[in-house]
Design a protein around this nucleic acid. Structure first.
Lengths: 342, 342
DNA sequence: TATCATGATACAAACGTTTGCACGACAGAC
DNA sequence: GTCTGTCGTGCAAACGTTTGTATCATGATA
């Protein structure tokens, strides 16, 4: 039988309310009594019953974590576990737990969120807003604090943490431009993923800054490798005379696939084509050539998101907040100076 | 303000206890009243307060999910998200939630488990027993139902689900033997991971069954690609005259690395060396050559594990149970008949 | 008609906390 | 020596359920 607060109270010779206050470090309790109570509590291996506690305080020490778009697919990418690790670290440190919702086949994201909120178990919600799903509408934000990772479409009045992906796209593109490349392809665009939308914006800005006209046909969608149509498209582009000399690729796995694809066309990386990748995964690190890749530090994203949410829950933060997490361009071997005259 | 059971009771003209029983489909409530109550509950968007419910019933609708060995690293592999997906699907269907513990840097696995158990939030625990950590000792199994995924060292009196990895190792090895290979290397062994221990056992049995002597130096550990020592070892093995003509590799990423490694030695797959891989990941599917790989169906592992745990919680299952999940050998392009006479 | 089972519902206690308020002791000010 | 303020502690109500037991019709039985 587990020890209750009454057991501790009896042992320590005080009332339950005093025990409760002592364990919460309420200043109304004298130092001496507090110490004695803590000692007894430890001796009895007392852990306050969270259910009872939550019942009256109307708060829990659990936050929901929602990975939209049937986490099934999403979780396959190392980005998500990394975010999760950041979240978990902070949660652990601050005595919180994470209730994970993996969007399932027979449930829409919105339903999953509602389910999570209605469960009554969570005090706040972390939302991976990778996709512009229609869930925006039915966020129970009125009643439940929500922090989003990745910026939402109408982020002005919200809590979220994100990289500056426009800047990242700009930086990546400019890195190639600075090495003489003028014919740069953008690989992995999807209007459903805000990160790619933003990075594309940066890509276009960087080109414009040097007066290089945009070729819309060189913004290639992401179903590459799973969709032969795209591959035919790509093949045509890279067989052409004035083919791209460099690629900004939205993801390491995509880049690795691209290397193999180019090799089949007798094009080698980086001699013929440079690749500037994103996400700096372990796979990219061990690829040959090792990928020059932008590290968006997903773990840090998680850390800041959880810290923000817990601050909100504890009342430290009240005004809508936006935290920007820095990225870093990691130089390896997949980018070389442009081999042709411009 | 959320509706409580009293609101429903008043609206329906009955007592709270009747509402409680009606919603639990207690047969003591007449059909007519039950229907009326359900209607009112729906109209008021009533959701029973889980805290209050748990406080008296001493049960929650949450199970803990623990990925040992600092999930940080582990979660990077697609195996774990896949398990998670299986777990999540069943949990969702049966109205349960998952509390995720990502072992953190400053916490041992054992501490993380204890933390999870002491939180009072969970009614059962799913444990990914991938490693033979010393946590075995302090499993709070007395008080908390535990289902393990992957078999524990002393599994006789436990609940767990697993593949038959001995058989899998045997099948994989025998597949190569049947194609004429006699010099087969085992790549990715680690005594810390039971799966590899078991598969090695199967590997040895398969060799023995054909009277082929085991070469201990051809059982190569797994830190390959992260550890140059291993690479030197491998290089020596593959430069030798009677080098292996085939490899049983414990993981797709490992196999992909191996392909590149062999290419650097001017050995091509599968012409010079066949590779039979494990885990059937997407990356392996898109590798060139596409990997012949054993699919251990991690999602199914998760499904069975969660079903078992929930059955235990609901009293359906009481005796220690072991569920075996079938595996499947997926044939692709990384295995060819042995090119040399034996 | 009185008695009894039967079925449906209500009553009230209990689960283990938190927290507003009351209380008593003690010190300093008058 | 009373009054007032401060400090430390206890009392009791409340949180929203579940569940054992009591209650009350109703119709069947004697």
């Amino acid at each position: 039988m587990k020890a209750t607060i009454k057991d501790v109270a009896r042992q320590a010779g005080v009332s339950p309310s005093t025990v409760s206050r002592a364990l919460q470090n309420n200043p109304r309790i004298s130092e001496e009594v507090r110490l004695r109570i803590r000692q007894v509590a430890k001796a009895l291996d007392f852990h306050p019953n969270q259910m009872a506690r939550s019942l009256v305080s109307r708060k829990t020490r659990i936050v929901g974590v929602m990975f939209p778009g049937s986490a099934a697919s999403s979780m396959g990418h190392p980005f998500y576990p990394a975010v999760l690790r950041g979240l978990g670290r902070v949660a652990g440190e601050r005595g919180y737990h994470m209730l994970l919702s993996t969007g399932s086949e027979n449930l829409t994201d919105a339903e999953a969120i509602r389910d999570l909120a209605d469960s009554g178990y969570i005090s706040g919600l972390l939302l991976l807003a990778a996709q512009n799903s229609p869930m925006e509408e039915l966020l129970p934000s009125q009643t439940l604090p929500v922090v989003e990772i990745g910026h939402p479409p109408h982020g002005e009045s919200r809590y979220y943490v994100d990289n500056d992906n426009v800047k990242a796209g700009y930086t990546a593109t400019d890195y190639l431009l600075a090495r003489g490349h003028r014919r740069i392809l953008f690989l992995g665009y999807s209007s459903r993923f805000f990160v790619t939308v933003d990075r594309r914006k940066g890509y276009e800005q960087a080109l414009a800054a040097r007066g290089i006209p945009l070729r819309p046909e060189w913004v290639v969608p992401s179903r590459f490798l799973e969709n032969t149509t795209d591959n035919e498209l790509l093949e045509k582009i890279f067989r052409a005379d004035n083919r791209p000399t460099a690629v900004v690729s939205m993801d390491d796995p995509l880049s690795i696939g691209l290397i193999g694809f180019l090799r089949a066309l007798s094009l080698s990386v980086p001699q013929d084509v440079s690749i500037l990748s994103f996400n700096n995964t372990q796979a990219g690190q061990y690829a040959s050539p090792a990928l020059t890749s932008v590290d968006v530090d997903p773990a840090l994203l998680g850390v800041h998101a959880m810290e923000l949410l817990l601050d909100i829950l504890q009342g430290t933060v009240t005004a809508p907040t936006h935290i920007e997490v820095p990225f870093q361009l990691i130089e390896r071997d997949s980018v070389a100076p442009c081999p042709v005259e411009n």
